[in-house]
Design a protein around this nucleic acid. Structure first.
Lengths: 260, 260
DNA sequence: TCATATTCTTGACGCATATCAAATTCTGCT
DNA sequence: AGCAGAATTTGATATGCGTCAAGAATATGA
């Protein structure tokens, strides 16, 4: 049985004799990341074998084709998973958020490029160390499987969005995703920011170009759809990256406009 | 350490005292399905707890929203995973082939509908039995994780196809998938039918409508693209479901027409 | 083998989104 | 604060795919 002590995310009353190190004890995603499957002993081991990576916004995390020697967990930030065709067409094939597993286990090379959309913090393992951890703590492997199945569901959801939705519905779907994943402070899995009534302001994390690459559209089209949503009073923007959701209900209806 | 005895797929010299039952010993996908992670003892257990499902072409396997009480492995056939919007728009969000895991572990209800495109054979487990199997044989869970990661990669690949490719490229991509997965008799994972030189004939498994639902197009558009490929001498058809690949190299170029 | 329903093909036309080209507004830096 | 470069918006036009409507081919069942 796995013990999950309900520690506060910020340990305020803690006597710090030397600068507080980034480790499992003060890790904000420990209870939702695959690490939730680890025992206390396992977490101690993670502290020993893991290392941190920090990538600035716009920075490259990995490039398609490079040898995949490590994997890890996203501690904070937004990661873009992309594919570029030889002719230069680009598609963001997935977005990843805090607490999600990042990597390509069972593979020698990266099949995708990954870039930081915001400042990104990663808790990293060498592939062998990671595999050893999986073998030693089956519940860790189980949690990883559960999260991978979740990612697969999300990817298939996105296949529907790209295959069947109009530009307006696509943008509405993206904005809902942003509201859900980035709307709350915690960025925790399944945050329910979109359930609340009042308006909600947050950072978009992606530029117009990046949004268009995620939605399979052109940036001009994205821009025009933003205009429509603003005119409809569903959202407001201040600058081009800060958005306020004025009417989440309407946004949900627009994401599936057939029901409206 | 897992023992993987290299038994022939068809056991010909076997003395059968009563009608040969469908079980692991004569299962064609045992060595590529997640079952490859099971010991001999585990396979005996699978024989005891698994049961077979057979679904005729066009038959419903599961419906979105139904309680997910079982999961399993596709022994043969082609399964369509679909999503339907309230307004009736349909999208096939994935195709599954022999040896692939089928199911929604960790979930109470099916998030997708699944239909048989061809006659489908499934080797099924109740969710609890399946979970017990995973817990008892960690290598089984590992193989399952590996396959799920593979499915995630395939889904992201398809996100690129839907997001950035033209109608012609989409159809070419689909036909290549068919050639790879259905071109050889064995339908085994990673079949290399498309490496061979000569022409290759096989069944499409999907109707024009289904192909259009997979590619995010309309059936008329699919039909027109078929015409183009036939006129270009890349494929031939006899009836509407039997295809001959005349020039796989050209097809590959068309699937990524930027390089041509 | 033929009759009938279904699926597929073909054609004409319209629209959503792409494309090309400025103009404008942000954003970071001095 | 003001400037320069980048990002975004806006406009005009083009086009690929969708839509609607027949008609041909194919599959199914008596």
């Amino acid at each position: 049985m796995i013990v999950k002590p309900a520690l506060p995310h910020s340990i305020t009353g803690f006597v710090v004799s030397r600068p507080l190190r980034q480790n499992c004890a003060n890790c904000g995603v420990r209870d939702v990341a695959p690490c939730r499957g680890l025992s206390d002993e396992g977490l101690v081991e993670v502290d020993r074998i893991s290392y941190r990576k920090r990538v600035a916004p716009g920075g490259i995390i990995v490039r398609e084709g490079d040898p995949a020697s490590w994997c890890g967990v996203i501690v904070s930030g937004v990661v873009k998973l992309g594919k570029t065709s030889p002719g230069g067409r680009q598609q963001i094939v997935g977005l990843q958020f805090a607490s999600e597993f990042f990597g390509q286990p069972f593979d020698e090379t990266w099949r995708l490029s990954a870039d930081a959309a915001t400042p990104v913090d990663l808790c990293c393992f060498s592939q062998p160390a990671f595999e050893a951890l999986r073998n030693k703590y089956p519940a860790f492997g189980g949690a990883l499987l559960q999260d991978t199945v979740g990612a697969l569901n999300a990817a298939r959801e996105w296949v529907f969005v790209l295959g069947r939705k109009t530009a307006e519905e696509k943008l509405a779907s993206f904005l809902l995703l942003v509201a859900e994943r980035l709307g709350g402070e915690g960025c925790a899995r399944g945050a329910c920011a979109t359930q609340a009534a009042g308006p909600l302001t947050c950072d978009l994390a992606l530029s117009r170009t990046e949004i268009s690459e995620y939605l399979g559209l052109r940036l001009e089209t994205v821009s025009r759809q933003f205009k429509k949503l603003k005119e409809a009073g569903v959202i407001e923007t201040s600058g081009s990256r800060t958005i306020t959701f004025c009417d989440v209900g309407q946004l949900k209806r627009l994401a599936d406009s057939e029901l409206a």
